Computed example of a mutant assay.
Amino acid sequence: MNTKRKLVTKTDPKSPISEQYKTIRTNINFSSVDQEMRSIMVTSSGPGEGKSTTAANLSVVFAQQGKKVLLVDADMRKPTAHYTFNLTNTFGLTTVLTRQKGLTEVTNSSDVENLDILACGPIPPNPAELMSSRAMEHFLLEAYNEYDVLIFDTPPILAVTDAQVLANQCDGTVLVISSGTTEVESAVKAKELLSSTKGKLLGVVLNNREVKDTSYYYYYGKK
């Protein structure tokens, strides 16, 4: 999938798919009356289900709403944000967590207004430990001072423990599953893992579902 297709909310903001991302944004905004959603973790049960694409497009639609947004590539196993936004991965989240550079030194502005990107940085030998470190707590506090919304792209929750560790540090989690490929058992287990870590599951995004153009445009094309 090329970058243009990945960032449909930027390249084609009025498309039906972009409208779906805006619907997800609206649902997140209304998901908690008492607490503003300022940090959102995006994960999946397994690889290749579209969680990185979802995280990137959600970041764009929140930025389009006028919020100051930071997309954080917290997938320290297989980072992709630097590819999506045509950046280098020399410095990033791991650089900040190991206290080699400050947050403002390593964030990248994107060509989407209000949206900054924090690449993963050099892949560490101990991702889960970094996620649960005091440095991560410090990073969150610093980032909250700079941004309205933080969106974390994390590894698949059934593959490694990284996402479980981060889930209870974020205000909410979006679980991405792929229509026709994610097994029901895997989706249920992913939900259970999130619950066991006291992570707040905001909802599930069903990705790669084919919808006939007629009905699809009937609901989302008339703007």
Rank of each mutant, 00 (worst) to 15 (best):
V211C: 09
H82I: 11
V176G: 02
A56S: 13
L115T: 13
T26E: 00
G180C: 07
R38D: 10
V96T: 03
V33H: 14
K222G: 12
K4Y: 04
V42E: 00
V42I: 10
T182E: 05
K78E: 06
K101I: 04
S196D: 11
V96N: 03
D213Q: 13
D73A: 07
T154R: 00
I117R: 10
C170T: 15
N126M: 13
D148A: 13
Y218W: 08
G48S: 10
S196V: 05
N57G: 05
A63S: 15
V205Y: 01
E183K: 13
I40K: 01
R38P: 04
R25E: 01
E36T: 12
T173D: 00
P125A: 12
A55P: 01
M37F: 14
V165C: 11
S45F: 10
F91I: 09
P122N: 14
N2R: 09
K198C: 09
N208P: 01
L206K: 09
S32G: 08
S39V: 04
A56H: 06
S179F: 11
K6M: 05
T95E: 05
Q65T: 15
S44I: 09
V165T: 15
M131D: 04
N207V: 04
D75C: 03
D34R: 12
K222W: 08
D75Q: 03
T181D: 09
R209H: 12
E36G: 09
T84S: 05
L58C: 01
K212W: 01
E192P: 06
Y218V: 02
M136L: 07
L93A: 02
K212H: 07
Q35K: 15
Q64L: 14
K189E: 10
G203N: 09
H82Y: 10
F152I: 01
L202A: 04
S45C: 11
C120T: 13
D162A: 09
P155R: 06
L166E: 00
T84V: 11
T9F: 01
D34S: 12
I117E: 12
V33Y: 12
D162Q: 14
I24M: 02
L93P: 04
S196Q: 15
T214R: 13
K14L: 12
Y144T: 07
K189M: 15
L150A: 10
L202W: 03
T11S: 07
C170K: 00
F62N: 00
M76F: 08
T23I: 02
K200M: 04
N27I: 04
L118S: 09
P127Q: 14
T54A: 07
D73S: 03
C170R: 01
I151E: 00
G203M: 04
N207F: 13
E185R: 11
L140G: 04
K4R: 09
K191M: 09
T181M: 06
T9Y: 02
T182F: 08
P125C: 13
G50W: 07
N145W: 05
I117P: 11
D171F: 08
G203A: 13
E19G: 00
Q20D: 05
A143D: 03
V42Y: 01
E192I: 13
P16M: 03
V204F: 06
S52Q: 10
G199W: 02
L71M: 14
E129R: 09
D75S: 04
S215I: 15
M131P: 03
I157W: 12
Y220E: 00
A167S: 15
N145D: 13
L115Q: 11
T54C: 03
M37V: 14
A128K: 06
Y217D: 11
